[in-house]
Simulated assay, not measured.
Amino acid sequence: MIPAPEDAPLRLHHLWSLHEDTAVGWDEEGQALLLSGPQGTERIEAPASVVAEALHRMEMGPIRLANLLPPPDASHPAAGDTRHAGQDGYTAVLSVLRDISHLVIRTLSMEDLKGPVLSVVPARRTARFVPAAVPPQRTVGLRAGVTITVRGNAFWLESRTLEHRVEIHRPEAMWVVSLLAWPTTPDALVEVAPLPAELTLAILAHLAGAGMTVTGP
Rank of each mutant, 00 (worst) to 15 (best):
I44S: 06
V150R: 15
L195P: 04
S49N: 02
G30K: 04
L118N: 11
D21E: 04
L15I: 10
T213I: 03
A188C: 02
M212R: 06
E42A: 14
P194H: 07
A48G: 06
L118V: 15
L199N: 10
G25F: 11
A85K: 08
E158V: 00
T213E: 05
P77C: 06
T22I: 15
G209S: 11
R165D: 11
V150Y: 04
L162C: 09
V93D: 01
I105R: 15
E158F: 07
N67P: 00
L15Q: 13
V117K: 03
W16M: 14
H76L: 12
D112I: 09
V177D: 08
R124H: 11
P135Y: 02
R128Q: 15
L94W: 02
H164L: 10
L68K: 10
D27P: 01
P122Q: 03
P136K: 07
P3T: 08
L94H: 01
S17R: 06
V150A: 10
I203P: 00
G80S: 12
A74S: 09
L157M: 09
E163F: 10
H19D: 12
L97D: 04
V93L: 07
L108Q: 05
D27F: 00
V146R: 01
D21T: 07
S36M: 08
P72K: 03
A74E: 15
T147A: 11
T91C: 00
P171H: 05
R165M: 13
G61K: 06
L35Y: 08
P217Y: 03
L162V: 13
E163D: 15
D99L: 12
A78V: 00
L34A: 06
L189H: 01
L204R: 01
S95D: 11
R128F: 15
P3Y: 12
D7Q: 08
H164N: 13
V24Q: 09
S119N: 08
V192D: 01
D112Q: 11
W175A: 11
L195I: 08
L12D: 07
I168H: 11
T161R: 02
A132F: 03
T139L: 13
E6R: 13
